[in-house]
Design a protein around this nucleic acid. Structure first.
Length: 805
RNA sequence: GCGGCUGUGGUGGAAUUGGCAUACACAGCAGACUUAAAAUCUGCCGGGGAAACCUUGGGGGUUCGAGUCCCCCCAGCCGCACCA
């Protein structure tokens, strides 16, 4: 037997066998216990598979394979999230139809994934750009529309000046477009919106019912950003207008010295037109300057507060009747709360800075700080001062007392606010799901009847969005001009498409029943397979895909389509693979590792093994090609065990503890995603075989069985060569014998005052007193106890600690 | 600024509830085999050294015992960021 095995020959052979045996297809037998692991389906980019994909895929492939061996009916599906900008941009550049580009990219991804030997059920592959798939994406959208959760609104949206497309809040990163890095400005546009805010509370509450890693839960909670407070109504002097604000610190109402409105607040226009603002030119100039600023500039200028007063207008503090000025400043956002605030400079840092900048008065209402030096914002302690009926109360009590008062006097009410905004669902782009609505002069927006779905994309020549920001679809006049489904008069189709998050918001449902042309999936299939038992994916999707899909799922649950309130029972996340230099892997940094090269040089089994061995699964980790070669070396070492077969049979008594200990360690570590230590344990076992000089067939078979989920091809090949007729994928997962792990003796570390001075092996059942005596009698210990008094001896586990002085 | 994560050899990293720090690898060094190289096998591999001793980012603390728990710092990474 040669020193090294031929990975290409072995791996292609077994991939073919698996495909022919269709052994990884989920079974229709719904009486079996089920297991549904899921990885995020890839976006089939032109660059091909990234080394990050196999990290997640292998991790759950290991679990999927183990579950099959444990007798579960496993659904481990794969598909492609293929709508989106990169493909469209490529199409714009080359003139090639995005569908063709997509088909080519999918083919490449499919062959790369197959070459890695994942145990996907390929018969259930989905593709979000397939009309048979997006028919149901459109169907769900129409349901949302029907229930009032999809609506069109003229709102200022994040607009990427380079992609010429509207973006959801979640897609704006540091004021620039998440995709292309182009500047993002605010633009008022009529957009389709989804009312995700209607689900804000449930999206928080139901996190308690699922098993997600804590940082995912925390990030989602923070993103939804619930805060409890009150709305307070301020009357505006000399008119009927009420200026309502939101505050979490109702207790500080006596400390309000001015109010601030966002530049976009509608009252400014109203009062301006009524001629009530004396310095209207200055105010309008300020508004225009604010509108020109991009999000990025606005956040860059955080330190410096700017603003103008509304001269001629005063508000009245409802708790003490004081008249106070109203200012306009861009530190108040139209998109949160009411777009106006009550300013309490004594107890809010931003208000304090603004007041200092413009010389506005500061009143202390909570004792404990020095409001001349800085705002005192601690609300956990302190007594109320200068606060009318609240004076003398503890802050916490005052908050509640004031809320009661507001409600009793009808000048305010308790209110919960969320940072979460409704989801901007329109994209002015070609390569997305068409929104199946028609605009009729007479009837307004009319949904396409369900039996006319899917509404497919028209063939066009040029995919570029128009300069006015409308989609390329707007130029497909034959497609746009249609008739109203309701009244039959000429009407126009919506030319915006859905964002790429649409198709991924429900794909896990389609996997349950992917070829169904009557419904998105049969109730029976959904009841059997849902929820997803284990979902692994990237942290970058926590506030995007993961939140969106939970929202859609809850909606589908509410209308009786899906049987579970949550889509995913468990969510884990892998750490990113960095370049060899520790930087993020990227083309521009020139540190990209191509999986194809690794597979060609050392094979899929080594690649998979290394990705699981390289470090803690949930931590970011730099790639090391020499480290990967080390994994290949280990597999060669396993391969050569065939030349070391012992004439003995079974698991030999002297090897029992090692073999069973490894089964236990590996079984438990896979479940905890501690793949690196599971693999280390198997390496140790192999080292033991080498130290011993031989291995029995059964011992080797056991190793192959537990290694096979990580590196399946070589294990199957060796299993076959050993003469086992059952392939490993159909072999039962081995159990371990706890009694085999019990040692006859314990090696104690003997410490004096906490420092190890000797080691001694003693029978496991020796009473503590005897262990103490034996330890004290050790010759190595004598020099450290001589002339000292032994105060205490502690015997715990495998430690004896002698306290002496 | 807020939230989260991480600091352990030359490198990636191990270390159940506090219990023998540095498992398993990578890189390096030496030996065996070889005409030679590669591959493979075997050994060494935190610092210091004669020994004592020192060592988990730094400083305190709790404990018989701390990488692990508590307090205060420092550094790095990732989110969010004028959210009232």
């Amino acid at each position: 037997m040669s020193n090294r095995y031929d990975h290409e020959q072995v791996e292609l052979k077994w991939q073919k066998k698996w495909e022919e045996a269709r052994c990884f297809e989920a079974k229709d037998d719904h009486t079996m216990p089920k297991f549904y692991p899921l990885i995020e389906f890839p976006y089939p980019s032109g660059a091909g598979l990234h080394v990050g994909h196999p990290r997640s895929n292998t991790a759950l492939d290991i679990i999927a394979r183990k579950r099959r061996m444990e007798g579960y009916n496993v659904l481990y599906p794969i598909g492609y999230d293929a709508f989106g900008l990169p493909t469209e941009n490529y199409a714009i550049k080359t003139g090639e139809h995005p569908a063709k580009v997509t088909a080519k990219n999918i083919q490449r991804f499919r062959s790369q994934l197959k070459r890695l030997g994942f145990s996907f059920d390929w018969s259930r592959e989905v593709n979000t750009t397939d009309p048979a798939y997006y028919k149901w994406t459109q169907w769900i959208f129409l349901k949302l529309y029907e229930k009032g959760l999809a609506y069109k609104a003229e709102i200022p949206i994040n607009f990427c000046t380079s992609c010429k497309v509207g973006l959801a809040n979640e897609e704006v990163v540091e004021g620039v477009c998440e995709r292309c890095g182009g500047p993002v400005i605010q633009k008022v546009r009529s957009q389709w919106m989804l009312r995700i805010t209607a689900y804000a509370q449930r999206l928080i509450d139901d996190l308690d019912t699922v098993d997600y890693i804590e940082r995912v839960k925390t990030q989602q909670r923070n993103w939804i950003g619930r805060s409890e407070g009150a709305e307070v109504d301020f009357r505006v002097a000399d008119c009927e207008d009420i200026l309502t604000v939101f505050t979490t610190r109702a207790d500080t109402l006596f400390g309000v010295t001015y109010m601030v409105m966002s530049p976009e607040h509608p009252y400014i226009k109203k009062w301006g037109e009524a001629g009530r603002i004396k310095n209207i030119e200055a105010v309008q100039a300020y508004q225009q300057a604010a509108a020109r600023k991009s999000d990025f500039e606005r956040s860059e200028l955080v330190k410096d507060k700017t603003g103008v007063p509304l001269e001629g207008i005063l508000a009245i503090n409802p708790v003490n009747g004081k008249q106070i000025p109203i200012w306009v400043s861009d530190y108040v956002l139209m998109s949160y709360g009411t777009g106006a605030i009550m300013a309490v400079p004594g107890h809010d840092t931003r208000d304090w800075e603004f007041a200092k900048t413009f010389g506005l008065p500061i009143i202390e209402v909570v004792a404990g700080g020095d409001v001349d030096k800085e705002a005192y914002t601690d609300c956990g302690s302190g007594k109320m001062v200068n606060s009318g009926f609240l004076t003398g109360m503890e802050v916490e009590d005052a908050i509640e007392a004031m809320k009661d008062y507001l409600e009793k006097e009808h000048i305010g009410r308790r209110k919960v606010n969320y940072k979460l905004r409704d989801w901007v669902f329109s994209r002015q782009r070609y390569w997305g799901e068409p929104i199946p609505l028609v605009h009729c002069e007479k009837c307004g927006w009319v949904p396409l009847p369900y039996d006319q779905l899917p509404l497919t994309l028209p063939e066009i020549e040029n995919y570029e969005p128009s300069d006015d920001g409308s989609s390329a679809l707007a130029r497909a006049t034959d497609w746009v001009h249609t008739t109203c489904p309701k009244c039959g008069v000429p009407a126009e189709r919506e030319t915006d498409t859905m964002p790429n998050w649409a198709g991924s918001s429900w794909y896990f449902l389609r996997y349950c029943d992917p070829h169904n042309d009557k419904e998105l999936a049969s109730r029976e299939a959904l009841e059997y397979w849902m929820p997803v038992d284990w979902y692994n994916g990237g942290m970058e999707h926590t506030t995007l895909h993961l939140l969106y899909s939970r929202f859609w799922h809850k909606f589908l649950y509410d209308i009786g389509i899906v049987p579970t309130p949550e889509p995913y029972q468990k969510r884990t996340s892998h750490g990113m693979i960095l370049g060899e230099n520790g930087d993020k892997m990227s083309k521009s940094r020139g540190n990209v590792i191509n999986p194809d090269d690794i597979v060609q040089e050392m094979g899929a089994d080594s690649f998979r093994l290394y990705e699981m061995f390289m470090g803690a699964f949930d931590q970011p980790i730099p790639w090391s090609t020499t480290g990967a070669r080390g994994c290949r070396r280990f597999l060669d070492r396993v391969w050569r065990l065939q030349d070391m077969l012992s004439s003995q049979e079974g698991i030999r008594p002297e090897m029992k503890a090692a073999v069973h200990g490894t089964i236990k360690k590996v079984s438990e570590d896979y479940e905890r995603m501690k793949y690196n230590t599971a693999i280390a344990a198997m390496m140790s076992l192999v080292n033991e075989f080498y130290a011993k000089g031989d291995v029995t067939k059964e011992e080797l078979h056991t190793l192959l069985t537990i290694l096979s989920p990580v590196s399946p091809h070589i294990c199957e090949e060796m299993n076959e060569i050993l003469g086992y007729e059952t392939p490993l994928y159909a072999t039962a997962w081995p159990t371990w014998d706890e009694s085999a792990l019990v040692q006859e003796s314990i090696e104690y570390g003997v410490q004096v005052n906490g420092k190890v001075r000797a080691r001694v092996s003693l029978p496991v059942d020796m009473p503590k007193e005897e262990v103490e005596a034996a330890a004290l009698a050790l010759s190595e210990i004598q020099p450290f106890t001589e002339g000292k008094t032994v105060r205490k001896v502690i015997v715990v586990k495998n430690i004896v600690n002698i306290v002496a002085n």
